[in-house]
């Protein structure tokens, strides 16, 4: 337990020292500010474009902006945040395989499963902080300019997206334990997410797939109910746990 704590602390220090936390934090702060800013600018943009649109026969009516528009931007931008997160963190295991620093810690008595647990904890912690910081900034701006109460189930739909991120992290952990280099991890993670996305295009199957969690925006408009999401949440939870355990098992047998 003590070595797990120490190793987690070392991982956090590594993250801080390599400026990854700074870059990720700033990316998510920018997204948090940009969501309401884009919503706020929309009427102005349409005003600017209305002349050229009128020439092609499109009439622009009056546009009213509300908090939902800003939340729509939030759900559109969060995928980019997740991609940036995966890009920056894909080397969390592999850079240690290449430099061989893990062998040192392992020969000093650090249990192998503690390595996987510590790195996963750090990733989950970082994603949680970044995601909810972005959410919080957008929330405060929306409250300031408009009214958040028109968005239904806001916390649950955001929770779904956060949980989707956790699932992606678990894929990353599993592929990091199987593969040897960072680009392989990127390809593996992207490939699995893309495959699941393709499968979810089949009607009736989509309800059981993890990608269902990314459609949380329809919850805020009231187009879908929370009960539609329970299956997807349970499936994602089970799959995440399975990936995590599989990651530990693979890592225990891995030759470093």
């Amino acid at each position: 337990m003590k070595s797990l704590y120490a190793f987690t602390k070392k991982e956090i220090m590594d993250q801080l020292r390599s400026n990854k936390v700074l870059v990720l934090g700033i990316i998510f702060i920018i997204f948090g500010i940009m969501n309401p800013a884009i919503a706020k600018l929309t009427p102005w943009l349409f005003e600017k474009m209305s002349d050229s649109l009128a020439e092609s026969g499109i009439q622009v009516g009056k546009i009213t902006v509300d908090a939902l528009m800003s939340w729509e931007q939030f759900f559109k931008n969060i995928p980019m945040g997740l991609i940036a997160f995966v890009l920056l963190e894909s080397s969390i295991f592999t850079k240690e395989y290449q430099s061989g620093t893990l062998v040192l810690s392992l020969t000093k008595g650090l249990k192998r499963h503690n390595v996987v647990i510590a790195k996963t904890v750090v990733l989950v912690l970082l994603w949680t902080v970044c995601f909810w910081m972005c959410f919080g900034i957008t929330y405060v701006y929306n409250d300031f300019y408009w009214d958040n109460s028109i968005a239904d189930n806001l916390l649950f739909s955001s929770f779904c997206w956060w949980f989707f991120g956790i699932w992606v992290i678990m894929i990353m952990v599993l592929s990091s334990t199987i593969l040897k280099n960072g680009s392989g991890v990127l390809l593996g993670t992207g490939g699995v997410v893309f495959a699941i996305y393709l499968i979810s295009m089949i009607p009736k199957v989509d309800k059981y797939m993890e990608t269902m969690l990314t459609t949380g925006y329809s919850l805020t408009t009231g187009a879908s109910k929370i009960s539609d999401y329970t299956v997807a949440v349970i499936v994602t939870l089970i799959v995440s746990v399975v990936f995590f355990v599989a990651g530990i098992i693979v890592f225990n047998k891995k030759r470093l």
């Binding site: 700074l22 700033i26 702060i29 920018i30 309401p36 800013a37 706020k40 300031f144």
Partner: peptide, 23 residues
């Protein structure tokens, strides 16, 4: 009207610029 957006963005931008140049 847009100051609440602009001020934090400028602050974040300057912090990032200083840290990067220092690095």
């Amino acid at each position: 009207e847009y100051l609440p957006f602009i001020i934090p963005l400028v602050i974040v931008e300057i912090i990032l610029l200083v840290v990067t140049l220092h690095h």
